[in-house]
Design a protein around this nucleic acid. Structure first.
Length: 576
RNA sequence: GGUCCUGUAGAGCAGUUUGGAGUGCUCGCCACCCUGUCAAGGUGGAGGUCGCGGGUUCAAGUCCCGUCAGGACCGCCA
């Protein structure tokens, strides 16, 4: 090794020892006759002292250097209690520049903000910054812990292909041309869903994997084109067994990394409750402002807007004092989400009700309104009326916006829950049905025989884990009988031929004694983001892409040459 | 595909409302001074196609149109 000690590990007990350090020049304080250098390596940093004759004046930020010197306790009065190594310093005997650094594109030390574009272009410098490096280490620690938990629980780690078959439904596939078979294409997996079910047929019984998944959809703060899941599948289990494993995993991660012990078992909420109370299938329980259903209350109203299948309300505390401009802003906000607007009533300090909607309501409707929705003087009440689902979506989004604007969300809190009993199907808008989860999701046992007769009501044997209003995991008990699978395909309008051509290999496997099985997949990037306090999953991905799928560091994606194009068979007609 | 925000020196910003010489701030960079700092300090200096293109105007960083890039959101993401 070209060093004997790490900088961040030096303490008073090392005083008197000769040490060799290697690392980067983090900060320099040049006083002419004496020069201080903070030498940083992966362990932390330590102050190195040079004298005039040591020729340290030419050292610059981020030079990579090796220093030989003696550790000593700092002179009286020069300790820095804010630093772990603040009681000692290394008196340099010799310094060797291992490599120089060009002037930096952005500061590595210090806390000034830097645009993400600049950070990503020089990500290797960005990762030298303490906060980013910490996020990488947190993710690493979480990965070790996850492997530990799954190992203890007897799971078998299996790697599944990333060059595989395009599967229907869900997201758009990334496609890879196949030189050996011009005209035929691999797809990158959106998830190892079918493989993990095959591994159950294979009798491994307990499978897990940290799996890279690829989806060619538009990106968001919590979405990248390639991302990682902890993928889990188990045989001979029901929902309780999968949930138990999930709680063990999440419990260990949060306890060891965030110092927080989630309640065991985690609270559960039905999908129907979540939609009714929070207008969301992933409710953020860190604040109240629950939706209030007002359909019954306004059943006899003469106000045409409220003569609807559903009327609901949500309260904005202190919202009555908003300016006209702010209230108009809510209308604009609602329209940007595809709604006509957001009706509101203002509860004045004297208890009277104001706002344009109030004029349209009867005395009787007005008199009980504040009490019904739980509004206090000074609050604003927002209403949505119309189709049940769309109105609840709007109110749910309004609730979150109220939480943000009114600073109601306690960021130090964790809110975990399971959302269970989601519907199996939803209308596809064209008179048919589509799977809410995926087509291999089984019905709850009570719907096993007749889900096909009531597709709008049938409940899936599925469960989502939600943390702070974010879905961090989701799974289901799968269908393992061909007969039931066929009924699902029938509801979805998938013909026998279509099913055969698209996932015939799974149906074939299911002829050979498939065990009852189920599983779950966790969004590993999102979990690591939460554990490290990041605001975007890009914060916990070493080399992420921008919102347009561009990597500012490598410049990917790039055009290919005509030769590559021909060789890859991009333009070859499909083989018969 | 759509909506919104942002783009000014290596970094972070102000200036754009109300058009008048690239006007400014903090940090960094370069040179010099400085023996106890730890966000060291001092003096001096360099560094700008104001994202790009077009238009209006006597005159555009500023107003208009288009376009590109980044970010947030809607659609989309079984």
């Amino acid at each position: 090794m070209i060093r004997t000690h790490t900088a961040g590990s030096l303490r008073e007990e090392h005083a008197g020892q000769q040490v060799t350090l290697a690392g980067w020049v983090a900060r320099r304080r040049d006083h002419g006759g004496v020069v201080f250098i903070d030498l940083r390596d992966a362990s932390g940093s330590a102050q190195v002292v040079f004298r005039e004759e040591d020729h340290a004046h030419d050292l610059r930020a981020e030079y990579c250097v090796q220093v030989v010197g003696q550790v000593r306790v700092r002179p009286e009065g020069n300790e820095n209690p804010d630093l772990p190594t603040g009681s000692i310093e290394v008196v340099a005997d010799r310094v060797e520049v291992l490599s120089e650094s060009a002037p930096l594109p952005f500061p590595i030390e210090g806390s000034v903000g830097v645009s993400e574009e600049a950070r990503l272009k020089h990500r290797y410098l960005d990762i030298r910054r303490q906060q980013v490096a910490e996020a990488m280490r947190t993710r690493s620690k979480a990965t070790y812990l996850a492997n530990e938990v799954m190992h203890e629980l007897g799971f078998v780690y299996v790697e599944t292909p990333t060059l595989t078959r395009s599967t229907p439904e869900g997201a758009r596939d990334f496609l890879v041309p196949v030189r050996l078979q011009p005209g035929n294409w691999y797809a990158l997996p959106q998830s190892p869903q079918l493989f993990k079910q095959l591994l159950q047929v294979a009798g491994l019984e307990r499978y897990y994997q940290l799996a890279k998944c690829y989806r060619d959809e538009d990106l968001r703060a919590d979405r990248q084109p390639e991302f990682t899941q902890i993928d889990v599948e188990m045989s001979f289990v029901d929902q309780e067994d999968v949930i138990e494993v999930g709680e063990a995993l999440i419990g260990r991660l949060w306890k060891e990394i965030a110092g927080y012990e989630p309640p065991a078992p985690l609270p559960r909420m039905t999908y129907a409750d979540a939609m009714a109370r929070f207008g969301s299938d992933k409710p953020d329980l860190r604040f109240g402002q629950e939706l209030v259903e007002m359909t019954e209350y306004f059943s006899g109203t003469t106000f045409r807007v409220f003569q609807a299948d559903y009327v609901g309300a949500v309260v904005m505390p202190g919202g009555a004092s908003q300016t006209r401009k702010e209230l108009d802003g809510w209308q604009e906000w609602a329209r940007s989400r595809g709604a006509k607007g957001l009706a509101y009533v203002l509860v004045q300090e004297d208890g009277t009700l104001g706002g344009p909607v109030a004029k349209n309501l009867s005395e009787q409707e007005l008199s009980g309104l504040a009490a019904k929705v739980g509004a206090e003087p000074g609050d604003a009440i927002f209403f949505a009326a119309g189709a049940r689902n769309a109105s609840r979506d709007l109110l749910g989004a309004a609730r979150l916006e109220i939480g943000r604007r009114c600073d109601l969300i306690d960021e130090s809190q964790w809110s975990f829950l399971w959302v269970v009993d989601a519907p199996m199907f939803e209308e596809d808008g064209e008179g048919g049905w589509t799977a809410v989860h995926h087509p291999f999701t089984g019905p709850k046992p009570e719907w096993a025989d007749n889900f096909q007769d009531h597709p709008g009501e049938a409940l899936a044997y599925a469960y989502d884990m939600v943390c702070n209003g974010m879905e961090i995991g989701g799974g289901s008990i799968r269908i393992h009988r061909a007969e039931m699978q066929q009924r699902v395909f029938d509801v979805l309008g998938i013909s026998k031929e279509e099913a055969e051509s698209k996932f015939g290999f799974l149906l074939e496997a299911f002829k050979y004694g498939p065990p009852p099985h189920g599983g779950i997949a966790y969004g590993w990037d999102r979990i690591c983001m939460l554990l490290s306090g990041g605001e975007s999953i890009r914060d916990v991905i070493a080399f992420p892409k921008t919102a347009s799928g561009f990597d500012p560091l490598t410049g990917a994606p790039t055009p290919i040459t005509a030769g590559q194009r021909k060789e890859a068979g991009v333009d070859a007609p499909p083989r018969p």
